[in-house]
Amino acid sequence: MQEAEKLSRFEEAILPHLDAAYNLARWLVRNDHDAEDIVQEACYRGLKYFSTFRGENCRAWLLAIVRNTGYDWLKQKRPNDLVTISDEDPPTDSVERMDHLAIETSNPETLLIQHADQEMLKQALEALPAEFREVMILREIEEMSYKEISGVCDIPLGTVMSRLARGRKQLQQYLAKWNKQG
């Protein structure tokens, strides 16, 4: 491939997904300036490896690079943001089954979620561990399938599933807690 052609193909492949890339980076590092740097760095890396890209799913390919770049940055600058979470399931099914139902599941909770304002939701999502936050963004905002998410985050399908379930549960708990305090 000629260099000029490569560059224009790269531009055509990346530009439509620049918003998605920035949104993911922004949620990972939680500020504008660093998110910009990360996307820029990811684009450099992308250009370098573009010849190995087989042109199947450009958004997933770019987001995987953004995610890796973001994690490298976090490891270096804010290691505390990356708490290692255990992906192991509780030992038996019964523990995982509807255990929180016993605590509190009622109509008011649905109402509460419906009435949570933007700021509250944003803070709740930012409070999640990065590993949960990223799967939530990829699933709920980018609307990716489990398979795509598994590719972007380089984790097995089952882990995608359990991180989503646990992330959502934590969000609900944050919202419920804040509501009580408020």
Binding site: L18, D19, A21, Y22, N23, R26, W27, D32, A35, E36, V39, A116, D117, Q118, L121, K122, L125, E140, I141
Partner: peptide
Amino acid sequence: KLPYYSAP
């Protein structure tokens, strides 16, 4: 409700 951060 969640903000979508578009590339500046």
